[in-house]
Simulated scan of single mutants.
Amino acid sequence: MSFIDKAKNKAEELSGKAKEAVGDATDNHDLKAEGQADQASATTKQAGENVKDAATNVKDAFKS
């Protein structure tokens, strides 16, 4: 996974955490849910990138 992808995913996760916290503090259920959705999206993207990295590592291991 490229550094840029990692940074974007982490930024999305942190943004989601902030939205969730603000939504919780202000009793705004929509904002809280949006923050949770952002976090889930970032986690899914990170998992996909980890699978790609693992596949690349396996491929590279067989080339050697």
Rank of each mutant, 00 (worst) to 15 (best):
L14F: 05
A7Q: 11
F62T: 12
V51A: 11
D30G: 05
A42L: 04
D53Q: 12
A40Y: 07
Q46G: 00
E20K: 06
T44D: 12
N57T: 15
G23M: 09
A25K: 01
L14K: 11
K45H: 11
D24E: 14
A55S: 14
S64N: 12
E20Q: 08
V58I: 15
K59P: 00
A40R: 09
D27P: 01
A25M: 01
E20C: 02
K17Y: 04
E12Q: 15
T26L: 15
S41A: 14
E20H: 01
K32V: 03
A11E: 10
T56Q: 15
V51L: 14
D30R: 10
V22A: 14
K6F: 15
E49V: 04
S2G: 10
I4G: 03
L14M: 13
A33D: 15
D5G: 07
A21P: 00
K32P: 02
F3I: 03
A42D: 00
N28A: 15
D24H: 09
D27S: 11
F62R: 02
T56M: 10
L31C: 03
F3R: 04
V58G: 03
Q46Y: 02
A33L: 11
A61V: 06
A37P: 01
A25V: 02
G16M: 04
N28D: 15
T43K: 08
A37N: 11
